[in-house]
């Protein structure tokens, strides 16, 4: 099992009030699954996504990712797990504006100490895979929205992570470029990658094989398609 969530709870304290963002989530995701997480705002889907991405830890419960228990890890250990196991794709791309596409893709490799001789090759390979082999020295502001998101996907891929976690990856794109990105995910999935997609758009979720619907911090429905 790639991902195992057991009785996950997450509380936030806003002043004196406690918000139960997630109430007892149990969830297993296998290797090479293509899962969409859906739900209205406030349903806890961002919280779940942050937990799955090891950006945050749960208040209660255990989370096993690719065999290691990450429930109680500290900041630095989580950083290491994120680097090794997770490739992020964000709605607003989150590229470094002053760095070239190539350098942006190299970043995860820098943080796991890959020597520079291998780094350029791996990054260039990932960019070629997403169809940007000829745009490597361009900066984000010299690229279109769709191209930026491709750079982000290349960055998510470069380290061969266990899962690719995409948070509204088409939210800032027009329908046509959005479809191109979704096609790219399709290809990656066919190539053996595990993909978790967070979205509130039904037609985007339909690309996946399994849709998990959240409401008020519970899994409302979990259906394979």
């Amino acid at each position: 099992m790639m991902i195992e969530l057991k009785d996950i709870k997450k509380d936030y304290h806003l002043g004196l009030e406690t918000v139960h963002a997630l109430r007892s989530i149990n969830l297993n995701i296998d290797e090479n699954e293509y899962v969409a997480i859906m739900g209205p705002s406030g349903s806890g889907k961002s919280t779940l996504m942050n937990l799955l991405g090891c950006l945050d830890t749960a208040t209660e419960g255990t989370y096993c990712l690719n065999g290691s228990d990450v429930s109680d890890m500290n900041d630095d250990n989580l950083a290491e797990i994120r680097n090794r196991e997770i490739g992020f794709v964000f709605q607003n791309f989150n590229l470094l504006p002053r760095a070239s596409a190539l350098h942006n893709v190299e970043l995860p490799l820098i943080y796991n100490g890959t020597p520079s001789s291998q780094r350029h090759g791996l990054a260039a390979e990932a960019l070629t895979k997403v169809g940007l082999g000829d745009r490597m020295q361009h900066r984000p502001n010299e690229l279109s929205g769709g191209q930026r998101q491709r750079v982000a996907v290349a960055r998510a891929l470069v380290n061969n992570p266990s899962i690719i976690l995409a948070d509204e990856p088409t939210g800032n794109l027009d329908t046509r470029t959005g479809d191109e990105i979704m096609d790219l995910f399709e290809t990656l999935h066919d190539g053996g990658n595990t993909i978790i997609l967070v979205t509130h758009e039904e037609y985007i979720a339909e690309h996946s094989d399994r849709i998990i619907r959240l409401r008020d911090g519970h899994i409302e429905r979990d259906e394979a398609r």
Binding site: D76, A79, E80, R82, L96, L107
Partner: peptide, 16 residues
């Protein structure tokens, strides 16, 4: 701040 967030998400430790 945002850049720091990106770097941390990609695996930069505190020390880095």
């Amino acid at each position: 701040t945002r850049e720091i967030g990106i770097r941390k998400a990609l695996g930069a430790k505190r020390r880095v």
